[in-house]
């Protein structure tokens, strides 16, 4: 699903170049639920953004779902994101002025669907995350956990093969975090989505089947594990 070869990404700040990803190689197979861990500043978000086609690598190859992202223009990347990837960020995931269902419908505007189909898809996605009854609420009227679940609904509404999550439980209490992680697991096991999730929290990482450790822009190690199931404790 994901293949990174010799990926370099650096930022220049005040004349100094900061190498964030340093000749990184990584492969994530189809259908994996992969947790990306590492200290703050190690390049996790940067990596996720490259895989999600939000940014260009300086050099190296980023291949996702058989497509070479490094050769795409910004507009091509945008089109690719619309159809092939769903994002969940740490917080402020939703557009504050839109209701839950409107937020979820948003990516569907980029697909050739009728208004009715869009509505059905969005309602179905909200039902999946258990928030159909809150669909007319604004983000401000939802709890942090509910907001994240709406974000997950939005990420899966276009039925992409890949879902990328950057600390989706970072701002949440244990209970809400468990709900979100359970959802991720279901997406992975029942809907066969490939998931890459950045997290600092070992308890969250325990829900994934693969653990990828990053430090100073380099891959440290990859572990396979038996995921705990959400709500097991």
């Amino acid at each position: 699903m994901i293949t990174l070869r010799q990926v370099v990404k650096s930022y220049s700040r005040g004349g100094e170049t900061l190498v964030v990803l340093d000749h990184l190689d990584l492969t994530v197979a189809d259908g994996q639920f992969c947790a990306l861990m590492g200290p703050s500043g190690s390049g996790k978000s940067t990596l996720l953004n490259l895989v999600g086609g939000l940014d260009h690598a300086d050099s190296g190859v980023v291949e996702v779902g058989g497509e070479d992202l490094t050769s795409m223009s910004n507009d091509e990347l945008a089109g690719w994101r619309a159809s092939s990837v769903g994002f969940v960020f740490q917080g402020f995931n939703l557009i504050p002025v839109l209701t839950a269902i409107e937020n979820v419908t948003l990516p569907l505007l980029l697909a050739p669907l009728s208004g009715k189909q869009r509505r059905e898809h969005a309602e179905y996605a909200l039902e999946l995350v258990g928030l159909k009854d809150r669909m007319h609420h604004r983000p401000g009227q939802l709890s942090g956990g509910q907001e994240q679940r709406v974000a997950i609904a939005r990420a899966l509404v276009t039925d992409p093969q890949l879902i990328l999550a950057d600390e989706p439980t970072g701002d949440l209490d244990r209970n809400s975090a468990d709900q979100v992680l359970g959802l991720m697991q279901r997406l992975n096991s029942e809907m066969k989505k490939t998931i890459v999730m950045v997290t600092h929290d070992p308890a969250a990482a325990a829900h994934a089947g693969t653990l990828v450790h990053l430090d100073k822009g380099k891959l440290v190690r990859i572990e396979q594990q038996t995921p705990v199931s959400a709500g097991a404790r």
């Binding site: 939000l54 945008a78 619309a82 960020f89 995931n93 990516p107 939005r154």
Partner: peptide, 15 residues
């Protein structure tokens, strides 16, 4: 600005 980030992440083009 952040809402624009979200729109772009969702695949809306610059145009």
């Amino acid at each position: 600005t952040r809402a624009v980030g979200i729109l772009k992440a969702l695949g809306f083009t610059s145009t």
